Computed example of a mutant assay.
Amino acid sequence: MRDSILVVNAGSSSIKFKLYRIEGADLAPSLSGGMSGIGSTPSLKVTDGSGALLEDRRFEAGEVPDASAAQHHLADWLLHHLGDTTVVAVGHRVVHGGADFAEPVLIDDAVLRRLETFIPLAPLHQLGNLDPIRVLRQRRPDLPQVACFDTSFHRGHPELSDRFALPRFLHDEGVRRYGFHGLSYEYVAGRLREIAPEVASGRVVIAHLGSGASLCALKEGRSQETTMSFTALDGVPMGTRCGALDPGVVLHLIEHRGMTPAEVGHMLYYESGLLGLSGLSNDVRALLASDRPEAALAVAFFCRRVAQAAAALAVTLGGLDAFVFTAGIGENAPEIRRRIIADLSWAGLILSNDANGSGVARLDASGSRAQIWVIPTDEELMIAKHTMRLLDRIASGARA
């Protein structure tokens, strides 16, 4: 039999999974896929380790109305197709670990109850992250499950980066800047050490630009500051989330427009960002293809705010040795990269237009004061590595 680790990366409308075969100290992907369009146009797609299509199935919306139903469908598919593979553990991406969890943890009843208390801090993600855990605990209570947190990478920030200018007792109660996308930043920082060790230990800003977007300042490979904070609303604008906002706007909406907190929350999470600015779409590809002035405004706003955030993080670092793009937009939108670096030209960053459009990893032109990279992220592999390390530590403790 072949031992493997299953990784589940669940959201509100999709669940991704990867199966990694354990080969000594290494992990080899053997299956990859997921359910998307949950509750609307659900579909299941699975490929093998070489990318060959194994399953491409469409469902009626009523067949997969929620994440729980999607997880059951995925579990059924895996049970019928694993062959001689033995899943020894499941690793999960969990967005919020609060002040309690600074590293991956084996999930038990107490851990699950504590993670449920963080749902209000990440309403778009946390509930979806936890639902597959519950389903698997019902179907396979013997199977170890490990929670890996997007907040963990940012623990240990300098106090200046960790606080809000609010009364101190609120910080003591957990109202602080947590930061997110940590699994992505951790993976990209590791890859940078492999491909550019001369700058990886220096002053680096990574821009994780996708439907959710944030930036992180690293020194010696460790997070120093990041743009998201108490929740995943803060920082740069995103697909449907507003990014940084004067809190007086929230007070105005409640006190003068008569909106309820729930209505304001829905607007800020689901109706703002690129979608709100353009009134057209939250998809950068659609906005770049549009000739509407609203689309152009949304793209310009996004690029300017990302560049401004990068400049602010460079202040924290005392300079910049490398700028790294990652995630869906960062990896696949040369025009967005071009505009962001153009807004940072005052700092001496120079983009090679030829490299930017050619699919290579390093994009800076001769004379640029900082290196510019595109490094694809792999949160699932990071989760699998954390899960395997935790299992090894548990096994070592048991032997001792």
Rank of each mutant, 00 (worst) to 15 (best):
S4E: 12
V8P: 04
V8E: 03
N9I: 11
A10G: 14
K18W: 05
A28F: 07
L31E: 08
S32M: 12
S32W: 04
G34C: 11
G37L: 06
G37A: 06
E55P: 07
D56A: 14
R57V: 10
E60S: 15
G62E: 15
V64I: 15
A75G: 14
D76C: 06
W77P: 12
L79C: 11
G83M: 09
T85F: 10
A89N: 08
H92S: 12
H92R: 09
G97M: 04
D100W: 08
F101L: 02
A102S: 10
L106R: 13
L106E: 08
I107S: 05
D108T: 07
V111F: 04
L112I: 05
F118W: 07
F118S: 02
I119D: 00
Q126E: 08
L130C: 05
V135L: 14
V135Y: 12
L143R: 02
A147E: 07
F149T: 09
F149E: 02
G156E: 03
P167Y: 14
R168Q: 14
F169A: 14
F169S: 13
D172Q: 06
R176L: 08
G179H: 09
L183A: 00
L183P: 02
L183C: 00
I195T: 14
P197F: 06
A200D: 07
V205T: 09
A207Q: 00
L209G: 05
K219W: 08
K219P: 03
G221W: 11
P237F: 02
P237N: 00
C242M: 09
P247Y: 08
H252R: 01
H252N: 05
L253G: 10
E255N: 07
E255Y: 02
G258F: 12
M259K: 13
P261T: 10
M267G: 04
E271H: 12
E271D: 15
E271C: 02
S272P: 06
S272F: 02
L274R: 01
G279M: 04
L280K: 06
L280G: 03
D283R: 00
R285S: 02
A289P: 01
A295T: 01
A296H: 13
F302Q: 12
C303P: 01
A310S: 12
A312M: 11
A322Q: 01
F323K: 04
T326K: 07
I329G: 11
P334K: 06
I336M: 06
R338E: 15
I340L: 13
I340K: 05
L344C: 10
A347E: 08
G348D: 04
L349H: 04
D354Q: 10
V360N: 05
G367T: 05
G367A: 01
S368F: 05
V374F: 05
I375V: 11
E379P: 04
E379S: 00
I394P: 07
S396Y: 08
G397M: 13
